[in-house]
């Protein structure tokens, strides 16, 4: 067997592919089949079972905003996941309410996914409804006007294009809202 893999290229190729596919299939094809929460949109109307809410697909404007978020590479510095860590739920909560942990069923319509790997800026999974449109306008024009010490780039070409700006804000305001986690503490109310 060893000798064959050593002397016969086809054997070596075959064996290395077989070994690769064992792990490859178990970790990519099997998980979505086993864990159905990956593909079932979040819906809960019973407060006894935890936070309520319903995941609905984005509307056209929000989709447009999402495309801008992808295009500008926002996701390189902002993650979109409240992890199962106390620090995450506390830090990204709002006015005393802890942010609910992100679950796979909240992201069923996400394409491309925007989970991200790096938090140069804060997490945005629950940013929806925290800041109003004027705040975002000022912040995108120059983040340092609002947050001293911020290293986020300025995006004047988005602010100066009302269509793009409104779309992007519409997308941001929808983030994390499928779980109705702070009904009484919204800036809009």
């Amino acid at each position: 067997m060893f000798k064959k893999a050593d002397n016969n290229a086809l054997w070596a190729i075959g064996l290395s592919l077989v070994l690769f596919f064992i792990g490859g299939i178990i970790t990519t094809v099997v998980p979505p089949l086993v864990d159905t929460s990956w593909s079932k949109p979040f819906e809960n109307h019973d407060p006894a079972k935890g936070v309520t809410g319903k995941l609905v697909p984005l509307n056209e404007q929000q989709k447009k905003g999402r495309a801008i978020y992808v295009r500008e590479g926002c996701w390189y510095c902002h993650t979109q996941q409240i992890r199962t860590l106390l620090a995450d739920t506390k830090r990204y909560g709002w006015r005393g309410v802890d942010a609910p942990i992100s679950t796979p069923d909240e992201f069923v319509y996400d394409d491309p996914h925007m989970f991200g790997t790096k938090r140069t800026g804060p997490d945005l999974a629950r940013v929806g409804g925290k800041y109003d449109t004027q705040w975002h306008r000022t912040h995108f024009r120059n983040p340092r006007d609002l947050v001293k010490g911020s290293i986020m780039p300025a995006y004047p070409w988005i602010v100066n294009n009302p269509e793009e700006f409104n779309a992007l804000v519409a997308y941001l305001q929808n983030l994390g809202r499928s779980k109705d986690w702070r009904p009484a503490n919204d800036y809009e109310k």
Binding site: L15, L19, F20, T27, R83
Partner: peptide
């Protein structure tokens, strides 16, 4: 070589530790 061939491919999900994944 052969342990690399077998072991490496399983580890992708460690980028999502504590995250929204099984």
């Amino acid at each position: 070589f052969w342990s690399l061939a077998f072991v490496y491919v399983w580890t992708g999900a460690h980028h999502m530790l504590h995250g929204p994944i099984s």
